[in-house]
Write a protein that binds this DNA or RNA. Structure first.
Lengths: 133, 133
DNA sequence: CAGAATCCTTCCAGATACTG
DNA sequence: CAGTATCTGGAAGGATTCTG
């Protein structure tokens, strides 16, 4: 076989790029907030602390597994605090940290664009689809 | 079987919530830009039109399949224009539309937050992991 | 050059059932 | 109340091959 195939070189490039992406702050944040439930939890906590089942009810579509998983990851990242009050039954509150709270304006800017332009996107999509099925 | 089980009610809630999510502009936009390659393509086209293989080289880690798929979806949504110049071989240029260009400030605000705060997230994560493996 | 078509694997979301 | 543990189907993404 030839010395250093194109495939090999491509693979090296891909690995290097993966490393670059792994180090890119913007990508990290996008990965974080783009999760289906993260943004919803963030918004659910915008007005103050809430208990587990309260959040679950606010985000009616989420499964227990996904909600717990989302809250855990947000806690791990310092965006949410989990407060356990020992009692019977146990009481657990979740709240945004100051850091987590700084994320809200970003979410808002996303919301502003979306509300201003998403209809253009939709109609572009409709036109595209109508032109060739 | 009992009339209207909890499972049934939960399923109805989930469906209603799915509908809500499907109609939410913010979610739509997040779904759109959170795609791994979308943001990279957007940035790659920020400075002007580029040819297919040029983009592919700029985003070294992307497969042909994913790049084509991403460009198609962006074109469908009216965020990118595809221009074919008949020649041998064919020449295809991609460019942001004015609509697509309005997305760049949003991307920038995401970038700003990320560069300002992502290190706090990382250290919070490291501390969390060190406290209990 | 700019893709289309195919196969193939891996990962994740959701459902379900159980617990301190 | 606030979770944990386990299983599984489906879809996303990559590698490969072929083409106008």
């Amino acid at each position: 076989m030839p010395t250093k195939t194109a495939a090999t070189r491509r693979e090296e490039a891909r690995e290097a790029y993966d490393a670059f992406l792994a180090a890119c702050p913007t990508r990290k944040l996008l990965d974080r907030i783009s999760d289906k439930w993260v943004s919803l939890v963030l918004v659910a906590l915008a007005d103050g602390p809430r208990r587990y089942n309260d959040i679950a009810r606010a985000i009616a579509g989420v499964s227990q597994k996904m909600l717990t998983q989302t809250l855990r990851s947000l806690e791990r990242d310092g965006l949410v605090v989990r407060t356990v009050t020992p009692a019977v039954p146990v009481r657990v509150d979740y709240d945004l940290t100051p850091l987590g709270r700084t994320l809200l304006p970003v979410m808002r800017s996303i919301k502003v664009w979306a509300e201003a332009h998403i209809e253009e996107v939709e109609s572009a999509r409709a036109e595209y689809d109508s032109q060739q099925g």
